[in-house]
Design a protein around this nucleic acid. Structure first.
Lengths: 188, 188
DNA sequence: TAAATAATAGTACGAACGTACTAATTTATC
DNA sequence: GATAAATTAGTACGTTCGTACTATTATTTA
């Protein structure tokens, strides 16, 4: 049954996001899904498999989200602003638990470099998508630099907001990002 | 013997920075200091005490560093640039292990909110110091916002550089921060 | 120097974890 | 409806961990 697998992965994503990968156990997933511990292990032999599946599903979600944005938004400017809007819209979760990508990368980078490589793929998706949008009105190298800078600001805002448990920090930085984006467009 | 305590705390700081608090055990500290496990526990009854001591010592280091900078640097502009220079100078470590403050806050924020409060004090030191420097040429609210923004950029740069294991990201962002600082000074 | 205190090492214990394994139950297939 | 496969639950095992405890050695103090 495909549905069962999805239930488990969803629970794993939530628990990893809220408590970190190292503090997520089979017992936790079993409790939160109401399934037996052995059942979880039947679907995911090793704990790493659970993490891979959680990341893969999140990558899929991001892909679909970016495709939707590409269709919905008119100009490249609107697309990039949609990204900023997403950050601001998640202010509460970001300040409570940090960024799902950022905090996972931070944790995995400490000891499990191989697993971190998978988590990094999430950043790649956003970075490449943003870079493509910036290329609508900027040369290649500048577009790359701007995409990187925007991700830096978004990640920094998430981390600081999480440290202070302060959604206001996200909102302040979102305003700054919008001004920053407008300035870039004015210049070009 | 005060020296013994310091040896343990130093080892704890390094290990927590490199592997995270959750992946730091008494056995690890014992191995890296060459002391017996029971001895470590004699000096620090609970694991939390070890973390508190590590943070306290780091806070002390930051305090002394900021005082030194306040004396050494001429203008407020120089002071702030010294901060940016520190980030850039640590590019290699930051890309290998992330920021000691940022990654610790990110980890503790997930489950141990009380311990995170102590870690947050490190951010406060830098933020207040930067804010005081910005106030040399900016009104209070603006100085506060600028300090926050600079920390956001520094933390975002560290996190992204760590995710990609790429010191280049730190260096790129340091250049952007310098330009950003120069623009602020021009405007005022 | 003798007694007391501090410091050090080692071990024991209970809990939690990832994993392996087994048995039972459900679902699918012919 | 019988047989095979997939699914589910539960348990057992070996390891690691934080902590508690004991014994031993070094240091201080009177």
């Amino acid at each position: 049954m495909k549905q069962r697998r999805l239930t488990i992965v969803d629970a794993a994503r939530d628990h990893i996001y809220h408590h970190g990968y190292g503090s997520t156990s089979y017992a936790d997933i079993a409790r939160e899904t109401g399934l037996g511990k052995g059942n979880i292990q039947y679907h995911f032999k090793a704990k790493e498999d659970l993490l891979h599946a959680a990341i893969d599903q999140q990558i899929q979600d991001i892909r679909e989200q970016l495709e939707r944005w590409s269709l919905d938004c008119g100009t490249a400017y609107d697309c990039i602003e949609r990204f900023i809007g997403m950050v601001e819209g998640n202010a509460r979760n970001l300040s409570s638990y940090g960024c799902p990508m950022g905090s996972l990368n931070s944790e995995l980078g400490k000891h499990e470099r191989q697993l971190q490589g998978r988590a990094r793929a999430m950043f790649d998706l956003y970075l490449r998508w943003l870079e493509a949008r910036f290329r609508s009105f900027l040369p290649r190298k500048q577009a790359q630099a701007r995409a990187e800078q925007l991700m830096v600001m978004a990640q920094g805002a998430s981390l600081m907001a999480h440290a202070y448990e302060e959604p206001r920090i996200i909102r302040n930085q979102a305003r700054i990002m919008r001004q920053w984006l407008a300035d870039i467009c004015d210049q070009s």
